[in-house]
């Protein structure tokens, strides 16, 4: 598989990871790649740890990404970024929101939310971009636009023209949210 890339999108069920993977998947098909996108439906979606794989290349066989295989990890939440870090290639890039959502063991007091996660992630020596995505999404008009802010950040890393991204985004989100999402994308891309 030459020139292709493996992208993982991780977060908490309900954060809008599916929209991000659909935008990415459709864009890559239009760019002429073979693409596979693997999603999580059902029970795991209910506030659990969710992961979506997007793989593209001349020909893609397996729809899943395994440990040490991701070129990019797009993380919607900090603990999930840390959880899926082993999936990053040693020369891959982590793009993560610093937003923290407490999982149930933290809520019940069974275990603490790990301290200084940002520092610990950086200390592994991986290429990590840890960003206050939530503030930018709020600036764009809704915390729900965090997914599109992250896509904006990713778009700078990939060799696809901005107009192509925006065209697919426009076709994927409901009409009344187009302006909001374009703004969110631009804020992410400007980082």
């Amino acid at each position: 598989m030459s020139k292709g890339k493996n992208i993982m999108i991780v977060g908490v069920g309900g954060q809008g990871t599916l929209l991000a993977s659909r935008v990415l998947g459709n864009l890559l098909v239009e760019e002429g790649w073979d693409v596979k996108v693997s999603e999580v439906h059902g029970m795991s979606q209910r506030g659990g740890s969710v992961v979506t794989y997007v793989k593209y290349g001349e020909s893609v066989a397996s729809p899943v990404i395994e440990q040490g295989e991701a070129d990019y990890i797009l993380a919607f939440e900090l603990l999930e970024a840390a959880r899926f870090l082993p999936y990053l290639k040693t020369d891959g890039t982590l793009i993560a929101s610093t937003q923290k959502i407490a999982p149930m063991p933290v809520i019940t007091g069974a275990s603490p939310y790990p301290e200084n996660l940002e520092e610990k992630i950086v200390a592994t020596g991986c290429d990590a971009k840890l960003l206050d995505v939530l503030s930018l999404a709020q600036q764009a008009g809704s915390p729900k636009a965090a997914n599109v802010v992250l896509l904006g950040v990713l778009s700078k890393q990939m060799d696809i023209a901005q107009e192509r991204w925006l065209a697919v985004l426009e076709r994927t989100v409901p009409p009344k949210f187009i302006e909001l999402n374009k703004k969110a994308f631009a804020l992410g891309r400007a980082l």
Partner: peptide
């Protein structure tokens, strides 16, 4: 996955980075 198969036939292990501490799980709620 491709990894379980590579391991089962070729004995190949993945190379990756990770945090040393255990992380709290996030079950559905």
């Amino acid at each position: 996955s491709q990894r379980t198969i590579a391991k089962g036939i070729l004995g190949k292990e993945a190379q990756s980075v990770s945090l040393s501490e255990p992380l709290p799980v996030r079950p559905p709620a």
